Simulated scan of single mutants.
Amino acid sequence: MIRVLLADDEAMIRAGVAAILATDPGVEIVAEAGDGAEAVELARAHRPDVALLDIRMPKLDGLAAAAELRRTMPEVAVVMLTTFDEDAYVAQALSQGASGFMLKAADPRELIIGVKAVADGAAYLSPRIAQRVIARLNSGSLERAAPARERIDALTPRERDVLTLIGKGESNHDIAKQLHLSSGTVKNHVSTILTRLGVKNRVQAAITAYEAGLVDD
């Protein structure tokens, strides 16, 4: 069972998202918050697997709440669920350690897919957001290629294999199957990769893999 915390200052939005998630028997809403500060408090109390956060909330906005959750409860996968898709918001969310960025206007099925992906250790971006991120990478890929390759030099061959699959968007479960490893071993590899690359999350690691040429366009 995937345990989810939902934070949004609009009760109707919370009800709608909860109703969508309730259609999947493998997902459970364990807490709902109306602002970012309450979301952090409830996360400490309930220790969810996934925290779905709106960006614009009172007391503490979603981006600040995401940063606090990643600092104090790194085991909680943070996903921004918002109507705002400006590049600045996407960049800040990913830099704060969010594992996903989804739009409220997206297909409801995408919400469940995204929640399951991040709960399984993968990263998830709404397709519209992912296209923009890739376009931005392409626009400056040559400038970033050499630094990215230098960073991956610190990885072992097996860690590079894992990073390549992270770059392709694979979850820990899928990586374990493809490389014939246990899920625990993959989780340890991922933790080491993040540390050696100096990145906060799988999205940033995937970007590094892309820039270093480990992942084809």
Rank of each mutant, 00 (worst) to 15 (best):
K177P: 09
K59C: 09
V133Y: 04
T23P: 02
E68P: 02
L181E: 02
L94W: 01
V40G: 01
A117H: 03
S183W: 09
T82E: 06
A105R: 14
D9H: 07
T192E: 13
A31K: 07
N188Q: 12
R158K: 13
F101K: 03
A77Y: 00
A67W: 01
I134V: 15
K168E: 14
V133Q: 03
P48K: 04
A51C: 12
G184K: 07
T23S: 12
L53I: 07
E211V: 10
G62V: 09
R109T: 05
D161Y: 06
V78T: 04
D153V: 13
K168G: 10
K59E: 12
E86N: 13
P74H: 06
S139M: 14
P147M: 13
R160M: 04
A7M: 03
N188F: 11
A19M: 12
A146P: 04
D217S: 15
V199S: 08
A45H: 08
A148E: 04
Q131L: 15
F84D: 09
E159L: 06
M1W: 07
D85F: 00
V78G: 01
A39T: 10
S139K: 15
A64K: 10
V76K: 00
P25M: 11
G97I: 01
V203A: 07
D54K: 04
I13S: 04
G26T: 08
F84M: 08
M102H: 02
V215W: 00
R158Q: 15
E211D: 12
L155S: 05
A43M: 02
Q131H: 14
A206C: 10
A43H: 00
V186S: 00
R3E: 03
I152S: 05
P108D: 05
A130T: 09
S183T: 13
A98S: 10
P48R: 03
S182P: 04
I152K: 02
S141F: 09
V199A: 10
R47D: 10
Q131G: 15
A154G: 13
V27C: 05
R149L: 11
L179C: 08
A77R: 06
V79I: 12
D54P: 05
A66G: 07
D161N: 13
R160E: 05
S126G: 13
G213I: 07
L165Y: 05
R56H: 13
S182V: 08
A77N: 05
L197N: 09
P74I: 06
Y124H: 08
A19Y: 07
A19E: 15
H180C: 10
A66R: 02
Q178P: 05
K168C: 09
